[in-house]
């Protein structure tokens, strides 16, 4: 099964062979094994896990947020808004960003629109924290 993960700013994986994949779908986690039926779904904010085919076990983890995935005859394409691995994240920075967002969320005069973006951002940062633990 070939996995491709791309974001607008970088290519994370390009047709890499994997044998198992867990995608954080909007309605819960989706597990995908080779031979999965064609599927289109949106992604929530969460940790995407995959297992490379030449490795026995152990999952690689990537924090993704807000995107799409398309499963087609043994190819999986994930289009994510952002995708960060553990190495690319800094615990202090993430903690600080989360604090900032929570502070902003205290503001009682936020428009529903702003509220939604901030909440999205909050979930993204929480996912990062979960990955770092």
């Amino acid at each position: 099964m070939k996995l491709t993960i791309v974001t607008p700013e970088k290519i994370v994986l390009d047709s890499t062979s994997v044998k198992e994949l867990l995608i954080p779908g909007i309605k819960g986690e989706i597990g995908i094994l080779p031979g999965h039926a064609p599927l289109v779904s949106t992604l929530g904010s969460g940790v995407l896990k995959y297992c490379l085919s030449n490795e026995e076990k152990g999952f690689q983890e990537i924090a993704v947020s807000w995107g799409y995935c398309e499963v087609q005859a043994d190819t999986v394409v994930v289009l994510a808004e952002s995708a960060e691995t553990k190495k690319e994240l800094d615990k202090d920075k993430v903690g600080k960003a989360l604090e900032d967002i929570l502070k902003k969320l205290q503001d009682p005069y936020l428009s529903p629109e702003e509220m939604r973006t901030l909440q999205q951002e909050e979930r993204k940062q929480r996912t990062f924290l979960r990955l770092l633990k």
């Binding site: 779908g25 909007i26 309605k27 989706i30 039926a37 064609p38 599927l39 289109v40 779904s41 949106t42 799409y68 087609q72 005859a73």
Partner: peptide, 18 residues
Amino acid sequence: SFSKDLIFEIPPLELLEN
């Protein structure tokens, strides 16, 4: 190659909008 019996996790219209 696009399969007709595609599984949509969310309604196609909503997906398309996104």
